[in-house]
């Protein structure tokens, strides 16, 4: 196994941990943090492949991903604050309005 394989495996495990967090966390910010982990794992993947192929493409996309994630977190946290303001709680298990 080469260095790249190692990094890719690492990214996979990081992604899996992010998934675990996503499915487990009960408050909204916790979920957002897990999403961060997953995005980070993707970035690692991109950079690793950029190393393999040469060229800037992978890194450029990683930068794009970072920028997007930042924007997403910003809006997400704004929503969290709104949620906290209106419902006095950011527990996602409390928001059951879509209960069938």
């Amino acid at each position: 196994m080469s260095e790249i394989h190692f990094c890719l495996l690492l990214a996979a495990l990081l992604f899996a941990i992010g998934v675990f967090g996503l499915l487990t966390r009960r408050n909204a910010i916790g979920i957002l943090l897990s999403v961060e982990l997953m995005a980070n794992a993707v970035n690692i993947n991109l950079v690793a492949f950029s190393r393999v192929h040469g060229g800037a493409t992978g890194q450029v996309f990683a930068l794009f991903a970072i920028a997007l994630t930042v924007a997403e977190v910003a809006v997400g946290l704004a929503l969290v604050i709104l949620l906290a303001r209106t419902r006095k709680s950011i527990d996602v298990t409390q928001a059951r309005d879509m209960h069938g």
Binding site: A12, I17, V19, L23, T24, R25, R26, N27, I29, D91
Partner: peptide, 19 residues
């Protein structure tokens, strides 16, 4: 803010499957 987690077993299963 409370930070517990629930339903770890099935989440772990899914995460392991993904991994």
């Amino acid at each position: 803010i409370p930070n517990e987690s629930g339903k770890r077993a099935r989440a772990a299963l899914v995460a392991l499957a993904v991994a």
